[in-house]
């Protein structure tokens, strides 16, 4: 697999050209069927936005207006930033946001590094036991990690890593499927480049670092995006391993504080909107890369 065969999802021109396909007629002609298609598409896409809009709307209401019966779309008392002021005033959200950044970045960088090293070792090296270790690694893709929370928690407790960053990060570094994807990619890189570098006296680590990694930039980006989203949104493990509010990630902290906000619905919505923003902003700027990263990695690099 090379960079060119990564699924290209996001270019408008390709989408437009393929519209001539099963829709039959030229893209400019509006047959009744195409109009019906457009209407369904717009309605479906709009329906998908409703929960966003309803919560954004609520977050700008006062608490009194949020709980008025019958439900009002436009609040009687006008819009206000009060809910945001309160939520941000409590300060926790900033701490959790920082924790999420630390955890997600550490998980992404460390996972990519160790998985890429391992993938290269499995792809190019001839140490004893290589085949067996590779087979075990691939078989473990089947294991649903969530079912290991009980023994894993006990283990982290015995390591004294409960309520630490490392306790959150370390168990999230094991991604056999990423090793598999990267190995497949490395297998496709022609060996001539490495041979000539070896002639020039470069060692394996040096070859890996300055030849293989630069050549693999697209697949590394795809894998990194996939890992980052996963780590940023991971709930179950961070939820189990952290009790100290100062160490919680955003999803866990927010879940814990919901009871704290009590029946403050506008504040609930404001906190959720704030927590939703970071990845949405990133998505707006890196849509193409994210779409490609998710599509590629989701397919196991096919």
């Amino acid at each position: 697999m090379t960079a060119e065969t990564l699924p290209q999802v996001s270019s408008n021109s390709r989408a437009r050209s393929s519209s001539q396909t099963w829709a039959g007629s030229s893209p400019r002609r509006l047959t009744p069927w195409r109009v019906l298609g457009l209407i369904s598409l717009v309605l479906l896409a709009a329906a998908w936005l409703v929960p966003f809009l309803w919560n954004i709307l609520t977050s700008f209401k006062s608490e009194q207006d949020a709980v008025r019966v019958p439900v009002q779309i436009m609040p009687e008392g006008g819009f206000t930033l009060e809910a945001y002021r309160r939520v941000l005033g409590q300060g926790n959200l900033v701490v959790w946001f920082t924790n999420s950044v630390v955890v997600a970045v550490a998980v992404t960088v460390l996972s990519v590094l160790i998985c890429a090293l391992a993938a290269y070792g499995f792809s190019r090296m001839a140490f004893r036991g290589r085949k067996l270790l590779l087979a075990i690694t691939l078989a473990s893709i089947m294991v649903p990690g969530q079912l290991l929370i009980v023994p894993l928690f006990r283990q982290m407790a015995s390591f004294d890593l409960v309520d630490t960053y490392w306790g959150v990060i370390l168990p999230q570094l094991v991604h056999p499927v990423i090793v598999y994807i990267l190995k497949k990619f490395f297998d496709g890189i022609p060996r001539e480049l490495e041979e000539s570098a070896r002639m020039d006296g470069a060692g394996p680590l040096r070859i890996f670092w300055s030849i293989i990694l630069p050549l693999s930039r697209p697949v590394l980006a795809a894998v990194s995006i996939f890992l980052f989203i996963g780590a940023w949104n991971n709930f179950l493990w961070p939820f189990i391993v952290t009790n100290n509010p100062d160490l919680m990630t955003l999803p866990v902290g927010l879940a814990n504080v919901r009871s704290g906000y009590g029946l403050q619905y506008a504040q609930n919505s404001a906190a959720a909107v704030l927590a939703a923003l970071p990845l949405l902003v990133v998505f707006v700027f890196f849509q193409r890369q994210i779409v490609r990263g998710v599509a590629t990695t989701g397919l196991g690099g096919q």
């Binding site: 919560n55 879940a255 919901r258 919505s269 959720a272 927590a275 998505f283």
Partner: peptide
């Protein structure tokens, strides 16, 4: 279209459940 169908996937589960709990 891509944004509205794919954006929810980028939300942490807690945000999703706050959104829907309120719906």
């Amino acid at each position: 279209y891509r944004m509205s169908f794919f954006a929810p996937f980028l939300l942490p589960v807690t945000v999703v459940t706050i959104f829907w709990g309120w719906m």
